[in-house]
């Protein structure tokens, strides 16, 4: 049995990716299972989904804690989500990134594969710049770097189950298959992954009952972002429109009335840039890539 975990962002198709893999594995004559636990995810927020593939009926209905394969649909998630958690020694990490595999060292020895799935998807007209849909491209790559599913099954599954632009998605999957690069990495000294974000600590007892009073600004929603605003101070007229229309209260005004983006809370929606009368704000790809 092979266990796979997908990391994506709300709205990016991580749940569909796992389901599509299950459909494809079924076409290969295997027995798949895919699932997700969700309810509170928002567009852009980190989400996970899972799949199991086996030759025999699957007798587990539990979470996957030690995956054989981890698929990361968004390169930014490596920094903000615990994507390497539990990855088995000798397992495979597949990341959507233009960077070489060596840039994603795993705690334990593993095969690391990368491809610029965003670029591939966009070149085939799948998704948009702010929300590229990379799941089909990534499944094409997955069929190359593991024996879990065949490329022809992925193509068939796309034809049958992707409602919008199946032909383009199929071509993206083929290009993903052909462009992915793999490297065998030795694992990090000490076998520890870089630590991800830490959830707010809870007391072990809840004597006050279900009263919540901790400030939500301890939560850094910047992890949802793929684009970030850059303000050109020289162009700014201090009209404060950006402050006024920010749904995340992530813009402060300094003592002179200039806006300052509070990076840890900006979700990169771009409203400030659109509403800025002198066009002093530009949305750039997170990380300056």
């Amino acid at each position: 049995m092979i266990e796979i975990r997908f990391h994506g962002r709300g709205g990016q198709g991580a749940v569909i990716a796992a389901e599509l893999l299950a459909q494809a594995a079924n076409l290969d004559g295997k027995i798949p299972q895919s699932f997700a636990f969700y309810g509170a995810e928002r567009r852009g927020a980190p989400v996970v989904s899972y799949a199991r593939i086996d030759d025999r009926p699957i007798r587990l209905r539990t979470a996957i804690t030690a995956p054989d394969i981890v698929v990361v649909l968004d390169p930014g998630l490596v920094e903000v989500a615990p994507v390497m958690d539990g990855l088995k020694p000798g397992g495979t990490l597949l990341v959507n990134s233009p960077l070489p595999p060596e840039r994603f060292p795993t705690p334990k020895p593993a095969f690391v594969a990368t491809l610029d799935a965003t670029q591939i998807a966009l070149s085939h007209g799948v998704g948009s710049r702010t929300m590229p849909i990379v799941n089909t491209t990534m499944l094409g790559a997955l069929s190359r770097v593991s024996s879990v599913v065949s490329l022809s099954a992925v193509q068939h599954a796309i034809d049958e189950h992707v409602p919008a632009r199946p032909a383009e998605n199929g071509l993206a999957a083929i290009e993903g298959f052909h462009t992915v690069r793999v490297a065998e990495l030795p694992g990090l000294p000490g076998g520890k992954a870089p630590s991800g974000p830490v959830a707010p600590a809870l007391s072990s007892e809840v004597p006050e009952g279900p009263i919540a009073s901790m400030a939500s600004d301890v939560l850094h929603t910047s992890s949802w972002r793929t684009l970030q605003p850059v303000i050109t101070r020289e162009k700014c007229t201090r009209c404060n429109f950006c402050w006024k229309f920010c749904p995340d209260n992530a813009i402060d005004l300094d003592s002179e009335g200039f806006p300052v983006v509070r990076n840890e809370h900006c979700k990169g929606c771009g409203l400030c840039a659109v509403e800025c009368p002198p066009v002093a704000i530009e949305m750039v790809v997170e990380g300056g890539a």
């Binding site: 809870l202 809840v206 009952g209 279900p210 009263i211 009073s213 400030a215």
Partner: peptide, 24 residues
Amino acid sequence: KGTLVPGKATRLGSYVGPADYVRF
């Protein structure tokens, strides 16, 4: 005790994850 207090950040009835749910 464990009540809403005007003027103070106090939310009663939040959603929680499984680990907190079972503790409540």
